[in-house]
Nucleic acid binder design. Structure first.
Lengths: 242, 242
DNA sequence: AAAATAGTGTCTTTCAGACAGTATACA
DNA sequence: TGTATACTGTCTGAAAGACACTATTTT
């Protein structure tokens, strides 16, 4: 079968020149979220090179020619954050023309949800676990109350991640990716509250989650520093997607 | 301020070589949706060139080096579909390594929501307004009951668009982008039903939408071929996002 | 015993779904 | 007049929020 230039598909592919036009570079950046003691955190690192040296950036890097976007994200998460086998989902692409002064770089943003024990166990050079606060249409990244300057549009990426996670929290049961295998109902509610940025009614939260049949009692109770110990539950990964 | 190689930011940028590594090509593809007579439709065109000649593809093209992703999507929508000033939102990137036989092409998928009058007015060479049916985790694209072969992963893009639109239908009031300025409550419900792929309770749908304060009566009624004419409403663009 | 958190029972309000009935067009 | 659709009013059941109360631990 020949095309309008009289070429077969094989001939067409042989003469195709991918370098005929100037192309943007393609990167992946990852917004790593965790909830520690009811506080929402993001993993960033202090840049030690130009451009925007000393600002704080999300971990990321360029997409190799022979790896999928998902593979690139998993590789960078492993290499730059030291974390694997966690929840990892693509957010979207960010492609403002002037978002990077080096050259035209389009980035595919991902977000990862990491349980606190896993996050606290990783120690990578220059990495910082910073606080995140969403207020209005912006996000504030800080450590010990001290605001951090964020690299290029990375604050936008964090904000968009928060919006996405809030929307998918229920449908995809994302909260369980931020908890250890066994957890109390209070801890589950803490995660929901940290992500949604608001307090929830304890009674109806308990009822809803218990009635949803997504939890299984472990029979054990919290080894607690608190007062009355709470029952520990596990997540039953049922739930169907749309 | 000098980096670890002793370069200033200006010197660093001058010596930066974007071509040091082989990079994927970057494209944009657009899933154009409309609802005609209660039926969900997608705009595709029959490929007249390799690869996968004669399959049906979403309109798209390459991202220019000096335009943002959003600008590229708007340009391609205008040039390839003949439509502008419609709802246009980025879905996400699709980057399977083997998704295009020409070379490594990562595509940023967008979706557009177009009112039926606007869609029917456009006449672009080779374009087809096809039916869409979602069943299970796949999508079926057809014309007059005849299934169409879709180009590379474009069926996945359409499916993902449907999922996204269903999720954002309420929050972002997307249905109004698929309707003329004045519309009946029945037409609004038809759009919701077409997008969600299920029938809704008429009574509670009316009550919910009327109570939501997002509609304004025009005072006019439908010039109808139906029985009793229905009141026409307009969309009051209030509603705050998250 | 006091304090603090976990967990239970119940009342009220809200809202979706169902159904019955009225209104207004066309054939 | 019959029929089909638009629109209104009311009942019922499910679930969220609020509140009161009991249970179990640490100090």
């Amino acid at each position: 079968m020949l095309d309008k230039d009289g070429l077969s598909e094989k001939e067409f592919l042989a003469q195709y020149d991918a370098n005929a036009f100037e192309r943007p570079s393609l990167a992946v950046d990852i917004c790593v979220l965790t909830v520690i003691a009811g506080q929402l955190k993001v993993g960033v690192y202090k840049r030690d090179a130009h451009p925007q040296m000393h600002s704080f950036a999300l971990p990321g890097g360029f997409v190799h020619i022979d790896e999928s976007l998902d593979d690139a994200a998993a590789r960078l998460l492993r290499d730059k954050v030291g974390v694997q086998n966690v929840y990892l989902e693509q957010l979207r692409a960010f492609g403002r023309v002037d978002r990077d002064p080096r050259t035209r770089i389009v980035t595919i943003a991902y977000f990862a949800l990491v349980p606190p024990e896993v996050m606290l166990r990783t120690q990578v050079q220059g990495s910082v676990i910073a606080d995140v606060m969403a207020h209005k249409q912006k996000v504030k990244v800080s450590v010990a109350g001290e605001g951090l300057e964020t690299f290029t549009d990375h604050a936008d990426i964090i904000f968009a991640t928060l919006q996405r996670v809030r929307g998918e929290l229920e449908q995809k049961s994302l909260a369980y990716s931020l908890l250890p295998k066994a957890f109390t109902l209070r801890a589950l509610q803490d995660v929901h509250e940290a992500l949604r940025g608001e307090n929830l009614n304890k009674d109806s939260f308990r009822r809803k989650v218990l009635k949803s049949q997504t939890l299984k009692e472990t029979g054990k109770v919290e080894r607690a520093s608190s007062k009355r110990p709470a029952a520990l539950y596990r997540f039953k990964k049922t739930k169907v997607s749309l």
